[in-house]
Design a binder for these strands. Structure first.
Lengths: 187, 187
DNA sequence: ATCACTGTATACAGATTAGTATAATGATGC
DNA sequence: GCATCATTATACTAATCTGTATACAGTGAT
């Protein structure tokens, strides 16, 4: 049971979030994680691989958490959509919230042929599709439009919350989501 | 009439947008701008100063453009709010749109004590206040809430449009804005 | 005890970065 | 013709970065 790989992953995730990805050197990561570069490069062949793994892990954690919450606490499909932003608020305001990786990563790696950009773009679409899935299950007519709008609000709120913690942006995002969902439901 | 300072500014702005700020070296900027580092450092004391000037210029350009559009094409205050996102769409889809600086900058410089982060955070707030001003003039009751929601949608749409050009995100943002404005108006 | 394995420690290579020092160029005005 | 000024060209420093090479320490199994 090594645990070192995970230690490096979470350390890198935190540093990327607080210092930025490009501004965080490999030396800093191993120093904070309490290991050496040799070990890091054994588990992750390059810094780029490490970045990709951090993104994958963060996305997986979020999706699993959200899916569990919705599965356990709601029964009807329409309820899932309604409560979506309640759980997003819970996630964003939780003390161990360390940002949404793909939003920052796409800003730091804007070139479309870059693997990091491609993964974060893909994750962004994946999240939008998840909302789309919830919307169609809830019998929303314009599921495509609503899911795009809700993902816009999500990204905007996370961006705002990242920019200034405790700004309350997520609260207004929640009410905006409710309005848009109601509007799309009675159509 | 030098023009060199402006040439460096616009070149840097384009490169920051397409390649990222941290990924764009000073050597690249002067090479593309067709000048030398000596000249760049004469006009801008450091790369950080250059970044700040690029942000200031971009924000100024956007605000002037938007303000002129609203002043010339609308008469009643409520009309301004209604047409806000029409002009934002025009701005975002224009061929010389090179992104919204403060959104990317805050992602690349997440540390709150960083001057670049502070400026971009300040510009984000300034834009929100501008919407707040439009909302109060239009006699919106919860102007604070609506302006926050609209700025969320704005940032989300720009983020999405930056991530994938021509994604159509701005179209759905526009209808979302209309719904939220109407909801806040009849309250 | 020896072997295999994981991780440490440290030094280094090679590339890239921001920023500076110095000399040369070219145009303008007097 | 001469001085002034902005700009260029080029070389350099010093720091930082990713990634690697090498020698060493500890641990567990047989």
């Amino acid at each position: 049971m090594t645990g070192l790989r995970e230690k490096i992953l979470t350390t890198a995730s935190n540093l990327f979030q607080t210092q930025g990805i490009n501004s965080t050197g490999v030396d800093t990561i191993v120093a904070v994680a309490g290991t050496t570069k040799m070990t890091l490069y054994k588990y992750f062949g390059s810094k780029e691989v490490l970045i990709l793994e951090v993104l994958k892990q963060g996305h997986l954690d979020f999706q699993n958490w959200l899916n569990d919450k919705l599965s356990n606490n709601t029964k009807q499909p329409s309820e899932k959509l309604q409560k979506l932003f309640d759980y997003i608020e819970e996630w964003v305001t939780s003390p161990d919230f360390h940002g949404v990786g793909f939003i920052k990563a796409s800003a730091e790696f804007p070139q479309e042929d870059n693997p990091v950009h491609q993964l974060s773009s893909q994750q962004s679409q994946q999240f939008k599709q998840y909302i789309h899935h919830l919307a169609t299950e809830a019998n929303i007519k314009d599921a495509e439009g609503l899911s795009l709008q809700l993902s816009l609000i999500f990204e905007g709120a996370v961006q705002a919350e990242q920019m200034k913690r405790g700004s309350g942006a997520i609260k207004y995002a929640k009410t905006a989501a409710k309005i848009l969902i109601d509007g799309a439901s009675t159509q």
